[in-house]
Design a protein around this nucleic acid. Sequence first.
DNA 1: CCACGGTACTGAAGCGCTTCAGAGATGGCT
DNA 2: AGCCATCTCTGAAGCGCTTCAGTACCGTGG
Lengths: 357, 357
Amino acid sequence: MSKDRERRPTLDTVAQRVGVSRATVSNAYNRPDQLSPALRERIIATAKQLGYAGPDPVARSLATQRTGSVAVMLCDGLSSAFSDPALSITLDALSATVDSGERSLLLLPGTGGNGPGARSVIRAHTDVAIAYSLPDDAPALDAVRERGLPLVVVDEPDVPDAAQVRVDDLGGALQAGRHVTSLGHRQLGIISLAMSADGAHGPVSPQRIAAARFRVTLDRLSGYLKALAEHGIVADAVPIWEAPGSVRELGREGARWLLGREPRPTALLCMSDELALGAIRAANELGMSVPAEVSIVGFDDTPAASWGDLTTVRQDLVAKGRQAGELALRMLNGARPDKPVTIDVDLVVRGSTAAAM
Amino acid sequence: MSKDRERRPTLDTVAQRVGVSRATVSNAYNRPDQLSPALRERIIATAKQLGYAGPDPVARSLATQRTGSVAVMLCDGLSSAFSDPALSITLDALSATVDSGERSLLLLPGTGGNGPGARSVIRAHTDVAIAYSLPDDAPALDAVRERGLPLVVVDEPDVPDAAQVRVDDLGGALQAGRHVTSLGHRQLGIISLAMSADGAHGPVSPQRIAAARFRVTLDRLSGYLKALAEHGIVADAVPIWEAPGSVRELGREGARWLLGREPRPTALLCMSDELALGAIRAANELGMSVPAEVSIVGFDDTPAASWGDLTTVRQDLVAKGRQAGELALRMLNGARPDKPVTIDVDLVVRGSTAAAM
DNA sequence: CCACGGTACTGAAGCGCTTCAGAGATGGCT
DNA sequence: AGCCATCTCTGAAGCGCTTCAGTACCGTGG
């Protein structure tokens, strides 16, 4: 009696009570077409009366061999993750896509820029994993492979056997670079995202670039430099500041350094909108007006960019999230990974850039 | 043969290969003290060689009756959720607290301000649910009860049998209100968060307040009005604009309306920092300088507030998330819900408020 | 030499569900 | 009347794991 009190009802409880087999009760929930509506109704009613909330999700998953959830592995903790609006938007689109089925998002935040630990991945109840911009030696990636989970990679790194969504970072950066050169700027500065996951910040040396582990950063950098090269500006002449995260404060810091140099740059290329907005603040604090004295370009086109009237490279974040979601669903149904999907970018010119004086 | 190829190895596979019982292999993973180190090593080695990644999480959960994850139910989709930095920070602290065990976060985003659907909750692999600021008739709450899951409520609503974390919203708003009245302001305007989950925005009528379903909103409102009442300002004389989300654009819209009224308010009390930052923008666009011509106060003290030099009410978001996490862990271990935990608030005076002219 | 307490390992009973081959019953069609 | 198709429902075999009572063995102290 006390045992019955403690224990939650199961399929069997309901089956016995109604006087049918357990299979029939299961069908009542999962295959309504397999039994008469009357019986089904009786079963549901009895279940309700017994306080049975439906088949236990875990047991059901064990039997069906699918959990109905999608794990998203992030590089960093949630806070730094979501302070980047680009991620919020992407993740939202991803969740909307994936949720429309019957699935939920399992969030596996990372630590120290290296992604989630292998342990969390090994233990995760999930059918498929999505890696969002992880460093290429993230332990989570090994764990995914070990478990034999289908994998979708967003942005980076390159993983064989994984579906990929990426953005035309090089093309976008190229457009940004050409935009400022076409405005006549010849003294440039670059505020870069992280080269490696070590949290370092400061001026970037060629060695550091050579050792870089984030494709996105490198592609954007190449794009910028390529545009500049078209006007004979050599890479060595372009000061680069590395910011270990897409956060305003870090952009501000970088801009302070760049704008304090001689010759002073007349345009700053920033690898994210948040960095760019920080840079604008720094410029203003130095008494420089944007865009009259210094032009600033961002990357991503987050809502804050339009709010801040920032010229930037728009990437379709919603499409990115949606694609990642769709790929995940497809992988989950056993599809083989196809060619990487590439999201287009285009330049959005706003009020933070103007012709060089 | 082809069957062996397809099928992933299980505990049995490893057990047979090593020539021990399944129980022993299980012990090798879960209770290393139950077998000799030598054997354990041999088992692990064989497992590795076989490509066995460790006990299947779902099966293990079925046997142990715990999933190792914590479901967080949000009011809205991820994008609007995370555009509110306050939530990001809270969630980060929550995840850090909860993750330190071996658990992960299952995110159940809502739709249309009503929280996640009952279906997602019923199907979620989770041991405990955390409701983050849901309307009191959210279907998810019923689902949680039906399943008999332990519940932690953050902010609202009041649910019997649930552990609660709340913020001293009334006290915080009171401080904000007293701050502006003590500066001599007598013409006030309020930009409110949602009263109901219907997405309505615009001036707020007394009837709408009477029908409101969000405690947080009401408490903050009461706090403001109480402070004003101390100086004889009656509620009817205070225009209120309702913004259905904590988003700058909505704050801007509200401020445009409030600042266009006669008599024009000399101070605006905003229920979130994002709203307040939008209000500052609106004031500037109307050619009014902040704080010289209009004082503006926020709520939350997000990083953007300090970036924007905004006077605001600080709530300890990290503590909030941590508390929620700890309560969840405690509930999970069978603890009975205790008295609600209340997070303190205090006023942070910055540059967006000044004495009335 | 025996009882005793460890240590190292095993057998079997679950955990709660899905699913598939089939058993009856029913009705339509020829 | 006979046959087949259809509709309902059931029995039983899993899904992969944990756990607990218990067996076998070994060294120890009396």
